[in-house]
């Protein structure tokens, strides 16, 4: 995304935030409509099988409750993804500490991601989903944010807590791994 388009996108978000803070609730609707689908996609690709919509809702509630701390150093979108990532991690930790303790390994995340495969009738689509599911968690985060949302490496680095260069490497490794998976399958 060119900087001009990114800046324009960020300005729209800031204008909507300002409208909401002045009491315009329709601005909140527009903000949710702009970002909720991407957040839901991200949650699902991170292994959230049930309650992805709840996590997205919690993300918005937390974000709107602390908009006073949003200084626009990063884009609203990046901030929302960061909040959601923490919520996903919290939920996964809580599930690990639950009464039925299950070691959450990469394999389990793959299974959760593939649990929706019944909805994917196309064989080729299923193979692509499996390829993404077999990425490491960090590779999957970077790859999803890059391919699904078109985020620049700078924003991805903020979300996953890494550097721009490392994210670039993770993305290209992920792409190579997917190509290999599909060629071997």
């Amino acid at each position: 995304m060119s900087d001009t388009i990114r800046e324009a996108d960020a300005r729209v978000d800031l204008a909507l935030i300002a409208r909401w803070q002045r009491g315009d609730e329709r601005a909140a609707t527009e903000l949710v409509e702009r970002h909720a689908p991407a957040l839901a996609r991200f949650a699902v690709t991170q292994g959230v099988r049930d309650g992805a919509d709840e996590l997205v809702q919690d993300t918005f509630v937390r974000a709107f409750s602390s908009l006073h701390s949003f200084r626009a150093d990063s884009s609203l979108r990046t901030w929302l993804f960061t909040i959601l990532k923490r919520l996903v991690l919290d939920r996964q930790r809580a599930e690990r500490r639950g009464p039925q303790q299950v070691e959450l390994e990469e394999r389990h995340a793959v299974q959760e991601f593939n649990a929706l495969d019944g909805l994917v009738a196309d064989e080729a689509m299923l193979r692509v989903r499996n390829a993404v599911a077999h990425l490491s968690p960090l590779q999957r985060e970077v790859f999803t944010l890059r391919v699904m949302e078109g985020l620049p490496y700078t924003e991805i680095a903020q979300v996953v807590g890494s550097t721009e260069g490392a994210c670039r490497v993770h993305y290209h490794n992920a792409m190579r791994a997917i190509k290999e998976y599909l060629s071997d399958d």
Binding site: A36, R41, V44, T45, V56, D122, R129
Partner: peptide, 11 residues
């Protein structure tokens, strides 16, 4: 393929 499995969000 990823979009197919994502639930719709209730805005």
């Amino acid at each position: 393929s990823v979009t197919l499995g994502v639930p719709r969000t209730n805005v």
